[in-house]
């Protein structure tokens, strides 16, 4: 286990060291001490390493992540795992607004609650939230899965494209063109898998599925150029 004290060594040193890890590094386990809400911790990683942050993080933790596993033993500030490509990010506490925004792949697990705009414009990422998500979550979501074990706030899935949204609790309101859909056997299968990946003991049968009604302007072929 390699340990970096962020307060003593600074953010540039931390991220440069993590970036320097090659595909076949044998230093696979890293621990970051004293994050104290700092920004951009463990951003832009691209190696199969495991980074554990001992405390809460500020803006953009684990942004653009590829391959790496990042565990935050605390809460995460705005934009955690933004534009993630692959790998896994696990937040033990809560996540602030736009968690997993624009993510192309990988898995983001939030064990507490996520704030507003969780999964905004998601493009293939899987997001599993043990608690609730705030308003405008999955806004313009294009692909991937958002699983919410608690409740969803206002305007869930507004202007959604093809992402799947699974919510166990209540949905305060659905956004434009987002509707409840049948939970077919293949969806239960996908959801079972996601719940297992996210370490949730919830049952797939307890969830409802939401997705696009495909009625907005851009879904009408007559509006195509």
């Amino acid at each position: 286990m390699q340990t970096i004290d962020l307060e003593a060594e600074g953010l540039r040193h931390l991220n440069a060291t993590l970036h320097a890890q090659a595909e076949n590094t044998n230093q696979t386990a890293w621990e970051v001490l004293n994050p104290r809400g700092s920004h951009a911790i463990a951003c832009g990683l691209d190696a199969p390493i495991e980074v554990t942050v001992k405390g809460s993080t500020g803006y953009y933790c684990a942004g653009m992540n590829k391959q790496a596993t990042v565990n935050v033993h605390g809460s995460a500030g705005p934009g955690v795992a933004e534009n993630m490509m692959s790998g896994t990010v696990v937040i033990e506490g809560d996540a602030s607004q736009y968690a997993g925004a624009t993510g192309h792949g990988g898995t983001l697990v939030i064990k507490g609650n996520a704030s507003s705009r969780c999964g905004i414009s998601m493009k293939g990422i899987d997001i599993v939230v043990h608690g609730n998500v705030g308003h405008m979550s999955a806004f313009m979501a294009q692909s991937g899965n958002l699983v919410v074990c608690g409740d969803a706030g206002d305007a869930l899935g507004d202007s959604i494209y093809e992402a799947r949204l699974f919510v166990r609790g209540s949905v305060k309101s659905l956004g434009a063109d987002c509707i409840e859909k049948d939970m077919r056997p293949e969806h239960l299968e996908i959801l079972r898998d996601l719940l297992e990946k996210g370490g949730c003991d919830a049952k797939p049968e307890e969830f409802k599925r939401y997705g696009s009604a495909r009625q907005l302007y851009n879904f009408n072929i007559d509006n195509a150029y």
Binding site: G37, G58, S75, D94, S96, S115, S116, G134
Partner: peptide
Amino acid sequence: SEYRALVNLPGIENARVWEPEP
């Protein structure tokens, strides 16, 4: 405005920390 503004407060480790709802 950010959590890092609060990190030196006494007992912050055990405080109830949350984001005010809209």
